[in-house]
């Protein structure tokens, strides 16, 4: 049974803490939820509960990094990328400090808590900060890689993590690379470029569409900034239609990042955007929310069908 992404992250962080004494971990009274408590239990002297004070937590991490520490700041994604934004921008990114952001409950994964606890604009926010790198793991192996990558490589980094369990997509042998995406299913009629949960929904959609004779390529764009420009161009040229799929507002996130590349390169093809349609969400069981807001396999299928009608 695969573990929740947050659980994988907390476990890996604790393991990395065994071998790297510079790692320090901060949380804002949600360590039991974000799973940073796993690190806290293993390395209590390097774990700091800052209370419900996210601004303080992130700026404290900025200061720690100037003394050579590798701070990981943790709380729900929505609070980290709103209350934590000032220091992220004016200290950490401005001065290119070595602080890592673990956004624990991305998208609508904190389903029942409702719109206030859903993060649907965090990619847009973090992507707009110079020096910030943005990674969206899509399974346990990619989460392990992203966490280790954050420790081993200098600079501000944002890991968009889910509260939820994602099925395994990769193996421990899979090689990941910043600035690269992975073709996780080959296809020739259309490419779904997705991240996080939506990679899995796209895989489901591709399987269903295969039965209708539609060949869908699925790309896991786990590195959103920097993004894999070559792969985007290749998919546009080879499949002639693109569907971007993300558990995020359709504005500013993965879909925007992909569109920027297509527009700049002058290789725009019909593109559909599967995501939260610029609206606030609500409290409900996760699967019901995903269905209602069109970010499930049916949403991807609808996106593919629409884009194929527009494909020349």
């Amino acid at each position: 049974m695969p573990k929740a992404i947050r659980e994988v992250y907390g476990t890996v962080l604790a393991e990395l803490g065994d071998i790297n004494e510079d790692i320090v971990v901060l949380d804002a009274d949600l360590s039991g939820s974000t799973k940073s408590a796993i690190f806290g239990k293993a390395h209590p002297e390097r774990f700091f509960n800052m209370g419900i004070a996210e601004q303080n937590m992130v700026a404290t991490a900025a200061g720690m990094s100037t003394v050579g520490k590798i701070p990981f700041v943790n709380t729900f994604t929505v609070f980290l990328t709103s209350l934590g934004l000032l220091s992220a921008r004016d200290q950490i990114c401005y001065a290119n400090l070595n602080v890592k952001f673990g956004g624990a409950y991305c998208g609508m994964s904190d389903a029942l808590d409702g719109a206030s606890h859903h993060a649907t604009e965090d990619i847009a926010i973090m992507r707009a900060l110079p020096n910030m790198k943005v990674i969206v793991p899509s399974d346990a192996a990619s989460t392990r890689w992203a966490t280790k990558y954050a420790v081993d490589n200098y600079g501000p980094m944002y890991l968009r993590l889910s509260r939820d369990v994602y099925p395994d997509l990769y193996t421990e042998e899979t090689r990941f690379e910043l600035g690269k995406g992975a073709v996780v299913r080959e296809g020739s009629d259309v490419t779904v470029i997705a991240c996080g949960l939506l990679v899995h929904k796209a895989m489901e959609a591709a399987e269903a569409l295969a039965g209708k004779g539609v060949s869908v390529r699925v790309v896991d764009m786990y590195s959103i900034k920097p993004i894999d420009r070559e792969l985007i161009i290749k998919c546009a040229r080879e499949t002639g239609a693109i569907v971007c799929a993300e558990e995020h507002n359709i504005f500013g996130g993965l879909g925007s990042a992909v569109s920027e590349v297509l527009a700049y390169e002058g290789c725009g093809v019909p593109t559909e955007f599967v995501g939260i349609q610029d609206t606030f969400t609500e409290s409900a069981p996760y699967n019901e929310l995903l269905a209602k807001y069109g970010v499930d396999a049916d949403g991807v299928i609808a996106g593919v069908e629409k884009v194929l009608k527009r494909k020349k």
């Binding site: 320090v24 700091f48 601004q55 303080n56 937590m57 700026a59 404290t60 991490a61 900025a62 200061g63 720690m64 990094s65 100037t66 003394v67 050579g68 520490k69 701070p71 000032l86 220091s87 004016d90 200290q91």
Partner: peptide, 14 residues
């Protein structure tokens, strides 16, 4: 406001 917690972070790391 932001410099103060950053100074605190330095003190904690030191």
């Amino acid at each position: 406001g932001q410099g103060f917690p950053a100074a605190q972070g330095m003190a904690m790391a030191l």
